[in-house]
Lab assay of single mutants.
Amino acid sequence: HNLTITQGKLFFHYNPKLCLSEIHKMEEVSGTKGRQERNDIALKTNGDQASCENELLKFSYIRTSFDKILLRWEPYWPPDFRDLLGFMLFYKEAPYQNVTEFDGQDACGSNSWTVVDIDPPLRSNDPKSQNHPGWLMRGLKPWTQYAIFVKTLVTFSDERRTYGAKSDIIYVQTDATNPSVPLDPISVSNSSSQIILKWKPPSDPNGNITHYLVFWERQAEDSELFELDYCLKGLKLPSRTWSPPFESEDSQKHNQSEYEDSAGECCSCPKTDSQILKELEESSFRKTFEDYLHNVVFVPRKTSSGTGAEDPRPSRKRRSLGDVGNVTVAVPTVAAFPNTSSTSVPTSPEEHRPFEKVVNKESLVISGLRHFTGYRIELQACNQDTPEERCSVAAYVSARTMPEAKADDIVGPVTHEIFENNVVHLMWQEPKEPNGLIVLYEVSYRRYGDEELHLCVSRKHFALERGCRLRGLSPGNYSVRIRATSLAGNGSWTEPTYFYVTDYLDVPSNIA
């Protein structure tokens, strides 16, 4: 807008934040220059609390790290170098490059900038070799853009010569660093050979998330399962459950009422301010606690030095998902009996873990797994792929695949051998790939016309006998059925096997 004052003059007093240069501009645009008398524009009460600059400061050096910015700028000295009290560095987070010096300023003089007072450097006698002032900004957020400017702080001049310097606002972004852990990993099994893994992005990506790394490792069953005799009275049979499938998407929606109208769909109840505040506090606490764990609990591995020492970490090797089922080394339970199943799973520490690289999504279907087997899954978020990966501390989750139908069934015939004193040795093959492992066998036998009897055969007993022995049988026709019990439950009964026990007292003698 054009402003013209045809008559009258300007009068400025007691404006401590208004620089004289701005008042002189007002004289020019209003056409009143030359009308004012000496005392109409006070030299001592206008701009006496402001830094009124008329020179431009330029930054000469900028260096960044993930949490620091090192700045240096060209030296500046007023005509009387004693008038320079120091520099004021202003900075704040700036997602967009549209910041002005006066953003967030209120009537009390406060604003949204963080201000650092910096002492002037030592003055050199040689004007050509003056030290460049600077400042190291610490405690910054990774991968965050900051708006920065600097200006001088000078003393009051009796001659009211307006001098000083100020830089333009520059924008500097800190470097990326390792992201925080992925949030809320959930693993479920939808079949006997697959596990579905879902997660949420890290709360602090500290860069642009480029991919996720998912490692999985087959877990050995508890050692007590191999040692305890679950045929003993009072000892509860062990059981394991597989990871249940995901709930429906509708039930997972946030901010939804727990109660549904019987007449149909209901609208979600909005969260109160107290609920939102509580969630923010919980989120802040979780982030602080995660940072504490990362800094205190997890110790970084030592990389190899120039002395030739090897990095103890196993090298990563990509495998196809079809090879995942046989990740671990199978060892027989008892070496003397080769027909026992290889369900003991000690994992070799030198073995390469299978892994998958996930790009542009937060889910993965891990296939080719062994049925009813526990897996430990390790999830890392990465925001750099080359020249070397920059990934987060791992988040861990466990899951067990679903049982395989008929995996616990005894394959092959049940054979028998009759000894003296009416002892019958029953023999059968253990299931080759049971659900988890076989903890015991149930032997059901009966003599024709009598009630059915049951015998429990422990895992250890089966390994020693290759089956079991029935003792003290009365003469007669017998039928026997056997079924295995694994961590997933009972298998199917075998087809009945028949044998006849004679009275050993009636056996004919070869003595003449």
Rank of each mutant, 00 (worst) to 15 (best):
N360S: 09
H416M: 11
L505I: 12
D250N: 15
W216Q: 06
Y292P: 07
V439Q: 08
Q429R: 04
V393I: 10
L280H: 15
K302T: 12
Y478A: 00
E442H: 07
D229I: 10
S398V: 12
R481W: 04
Y445W: 13
S262N: 08
G322N: 04
R218L: 13
F372S: 07
V214D: 00
N421P: 15
Y292R: 07
K406M: 10
P270D: 15
Y259N: 11
G322Q: 05
E247D: 06
R466M: 10
Y478D: 00
E279L: 15
K287T: 11
Y212R: 00
H371T: 14
W242H: 11
Y445I: 01
V439R: 08
F246E: 12
S341F: 09
G308P: 14
S268E: 12
F337A: 03
P475S: 08
G472F: 09
A407W: 09
E224P: 14
E451Q: 15
V345A: 07
S474N: 10
V359K: 12
V397N: 13
D311E: 15
T241C: 12
H211W: 11
Y498S: 10
Q384S: 13
C468N: 01
R471I: 10
N422S: 14
S251P: 15
V327I: 05
D222T: 06
K302L: 10
F215H: 08
L232E: 07
S458M: 07
W216A: 05
S315K: 12
D261L: 09
A381P: 01
K236S: 13
I482T: 01
E260R: 13
F462Y: 03
K460I: 08
V214G: 03
G436W: 02
T303F: 08
D229E: 05
I366E: 00
F372A: 11
V457H: 03
R471Q: 14
R447Q: 14
G325E: 06
G234I: 14
E388N: 13
G325S: 14
G264I: 11
E465L: 12
E249W: 08
R218N: 12
T497L: 11
G374A: 04
E452H: 04
L470Y: 01
T347Q: 08
D291K: 05
Q256K: 11
C382P: 01
R319V: 08
G264F: 03
N510R: 15
P270K: 10
E247N: 14
Q256H: 10
N510S: 08
F226K: 04
L369T: 04
G325A: 15
T386K: 06
L321G: 06
T502G: 09
E217C: 13
S248Q: 15
P496I: 06
R313K: 15
W216P: 05
F337L: 10
L225Y: 04
R318Q: 04
F419W: 15
R469V: 09
R353H: 10
P475T: 10
F462A: 05
V439T: 10
V501L: 06
G234C: 15
A336M: 15
E221R: 06
P332A: 07
P245H: 10
S344H: 12
I209T: 14
S251L: 13
I377D: 00
Q256E: 03
S315F: 12
G322I: 12
Y259M: 04
V507Y: 05
T307L: 12
E247M: 10
D311S: 15
V297N: 06
E389R: 14
H211I: 03
T272I: 06
T288D: 12
T347Y: 11
E388W: 06
Q256P: 12
V334N: 10
R471W: 09
E227F: 11
R319W: 06
T272H: 13
G436E: 02
R466D: 11
L213R: 09
S398A: 12
P312M: 09
N255G: 11
L369R: 02
H416W: 09
N206D: 03
N422L: 08
S367C: 12
A394D: 08
F226H: 13
G207L: 02
E249Q: 15
E495V: 03
A335I: 14
E465K: 05
V501S: 02
V457T: 08
S486L: 01
Y498V: 07
G412H: 05
V365I: 07
C231W: 03
R313H: 01
C269M: 03
A463R: 11
T340A: 07
Y498D: 07
K406E: 14
S243L: 10
V365Q: 13
Q275V: 08
L426M: 14
I410N: 02
D291Q: 12
L473H: 01
L437H: 04
I276P: 06
A405L: 06
T401Q: 00
F289Y: 06
P431T: 03
Y259I: 03
K406S: 10
G234D: 11
V324Y: 03
S284Y: 01
A220I: 10
N255D: 09
V214P: 00
E356F: 09
S486G: 11
A336R: 08
S304N: 15
S262D: 14
V345I: 09
T288E: 14
A220V: 09
Y292W: 06
L470M: 09
P387A: 10
